[in-house]
Amino acid sequence: MIRSMTGFGRCETEIDGREITVEIKSVNHRYFEFSCRSPRGYSFIDDKLKSFINEKVSRGKIDVFVGIGARDDTPSEVSVNHSLVSGYLNAMKEIADTYGIENDATVVSISRFPDVYTVHKAAEDEEKITADVLSAAQIALDSFIEMREREGEKMKADILSRANTILDIVSQIEQRSPQTVEEYENRLLERIRQTLDGLNVEIDEQRVLTEVAVFADKVAVAEETVRLRSHFEQLNSFLEQDIPVGRKIDFIIQEMNREANTIGSKVQDAELAHKVVDIKGEIEKIREQVQNIE
């Protein structure tokens, strides 16, 4: 199934009294680029999340946000930095004595100074936290992939619609191209007759046929249209595969452009030239869609 590289998924849950939030979003990118914002002290989960997501996502710029709340029953110990408190008190006494002002130090006022207290939390089980985060990430990732697949289906429908439009135009070119040779032959004969009018000279039909054959070879686009149809068959095949095919399709689009340019350089007819422009316009729109396919 075709997937877009644009997606979003989020899970907010509570596991064993701990609130966990995982948010995944992505935009298109040539390769797999991963960025994770996790709470301070929990960076050990970043690589685990990268590997976990990379197993199911091959391309795109992936941004992940992780929120991990503290458990209500997590034991914490608060200690006082007594040497720092003594320093603060001595400094306040010195100010009071030097400037003759009241030393109104209180526990509350001293507590407001930085680094007076140090909070020590009990060591957390990294394996348990990692497992809980990955459990939430699985839900977010499922939602993320589902959105990518929905977008991919819309893109597939648009690409196939444009591909059918191009093939219709190719059929018109194949039908019109032989007519241009016949028209060239008629114009050539008419110019020769006008030139030889009044002169007792016969038209060299063999020379005319040679000129027409040279022109027909010059404007022949059968090989290019056959290859173009072959490219579209490959495109249809890629769109039905269940593996990432964005890069393969991008290459096929380049080949389609090459064939369209060759056809454009060969045609000597204004009507056909306009049709080639239409083909190139549709191919460009397909290319824009393909840039966002995983």
Results as ranks from 00 to 15, higher is better:
Ser4Lys: 12
Met5Asp: 03
Thr6Gly: 06
Phe8Val: 01
Cys11Gln: 12
Thr13Asp: 15
Glu14Thr: 15
Asp16Val: 03
Arg18Asn: 03
Arg18Glu: 07
Thr21Ile: 14
Glu23Val: 07
Val27Cys: 06
Val27Leu: 11
His29Met: 03
Ser38Trp: 01
Pro39Glu: 11
Pro39Ala: 07
Arg40Ile: 09
Tyr42Lys: 13
Tyr42Thr: 06
Tyr42Ile: 02
Asp47Cys: 00
Ser58Trp: 06
Ser58Leu: 08
Ser58Glu: 10
Gly60Arg: 07
Val64Glu: 07
Phe65Trp: 12
Gly69Met: 10
Ala70Tyr: 03
Ala70Gln: 11
Arg71Lys: 15
Pro75Thr: 03
Glu77Thr: 14
Glu77Ser: 11
Ser79Met: 10
Ser79Glu: 11
Leu84Ile: 08
Val85His: 06
Val85Leu: 14
Val85Phe: 08
Val85Thr: 09
Ser86Asp: 15
Gly87Tyr: 07
Met92His: 08
Met92Thr: 07
Ile95His: 07
Gly100Glu: 12
Gly100Trp: 02
Ile101Asn: 02
Asn103Gln: 07
Thr106Tyr: 09
Val107Glu: 09
Val108Pro: 01
Val108Leu: 12
Val108Cys: 00
Ser111His: 07
Arg112Glu: 15
Phe113Ala: 15
Pro114Glu: 12
Pro114Gln: 05
Val116Ala: 03
Thr118Arg: 13
Val119Ile: 15
His120Ile: 05
Ala123Thr: 09
Lys128Ile: 02
Ile129Phe: 00
Thr130Pro: 00
Asp132Ala: 13
Ala137His: 04
Arg148Met: 10
Gly152Pro: 02
Met155Phe: 11
Ile159Tyr: 05
Leu167Tyr: 05
Asp168Gln: 13
Ile169His: 05
Arg176Tyr: 04
Ser177Asp: 09
Gln179Glu: 15
Gln179Val: 15
Val181Ile: 12
Glu182Cys: 00
Tyr184Lys: 04
Glu185Ile: 00
Asn186Glu: 14
Leu188Ile: 09
Glu190Asp: 14
Arg191Met: 05
Arg191Gln: 14
Ile192Asn: 05
Arg193Pro: 00
Gly198Asn: 14
Gly198Arg: 06
Asn200Leu: 06
Asn200Cys: 01
Glu205Gly: 00
Glu205Leu: 13
Val208Gln: 06
Glu211Leu: 02
Val214Leu: 15
Val214Trp: 02
Ala216Thr: 02
Lys218Thr: 05
Lys218Glu: 06
Lys218Gln: 13
Val219Gln: 05
Val219Trp: 06
Glu223Lys: 09
Glu223Asn: 02
Thr225Glu: 06
Leu228Cys: 02
Arg229Ile: 08
Phe232Ser: 05
Glu233Met: 01
Gln234Ala: 04
Ser237Lys: 10
Phe238Leu: 14
Ile243His: 04
Lys248Tyr: 01
Lys248Phe: 01
Ile253Asp: 04
Ile253Val: 15
Gln254His: 13
Gln254Ile: 11
Asn257Tyr: 13
Arg258Lys: 12
Glu259Arg: 08
Asp269Ser: 03
Glu271Val: 13
Leu272Gly: 00
His274Lys: 14
Lys275Gly: 00
Lys275Ala: 03
Glu284Gln: 13
Glu284Met: 08
Arg287Gly: 07
Gln289Arg: 10
Asn292Glu: 09
